[in-house]
Amino acid sequence: MSTNVTIQHGEEINNSTGVSAKKLLMWTFLGSDVMFFGTFIATFMAYRNKSLVGPYPEDTLNIPITSVSTFVLLMSSLGIVLALHYLKEARMGLAKFWLLMVIIMGIGFIGFQIYEFSHFANMGMTPQVNLFGSTFFTLTSLHGAHVSLGILWLIFLLINEYRGNLNSENAIDLEIAGLYWHFVDIVWIVIFALLYLITANDGVPPGGIPWIGGH
């Protein structure tokens, strides 16, 4: 028998297939998260046009503002892919710059969301008021929670980058954080299409009471 002693370091690339276990874990987790967001999106679609009282999407949603925040999140995806690229090439200055940009853009996105939520709340749209509110707020706030978690993770990695712990050798750590970040981005792509663009013109559904609170 060959002296094939695989020395194992727990959570490192320690396997017989040559595939990074961490990356495999992240992809499997993303597959699982697909079902998580899928259920919320399905809830939203199933309850579309089922609210009995206002405010309805056409009374509340503000597409221009959300478009800007969508664009910010999209571009943060570019940022992290560049950060990873430069990290792999050991160009640390650019790597740090882009990672910082991603964090700023992420915080910007959360800022937009906080603004949006408080704006809605001032208008009288809360999770308690109708089905649209319930489904909209749970979906967007859980997405926001994912983004916030991602921001914390990236800040942690940025600190490591400054301390010299994150370098081209262990770029895999940034790569899996990047996978997570991209996933949050593609979820937002779907949310932006379904929750905002497609439903934004939905008015009073059959059997619903028109909303009288103004903008």
């Binding site: 009282v53 308690q128 489904t135």
Partner: peptide, 13 residues
């Protein structure tokens, strides 16, 4: 939090 997912009075199913 008083949301309406399964609240039949608010149209929930």
């Amino acid at each position: 939090y008083g949301t309406n997912f399964f609240n039949s009075e608010a149209g929930g199913d």
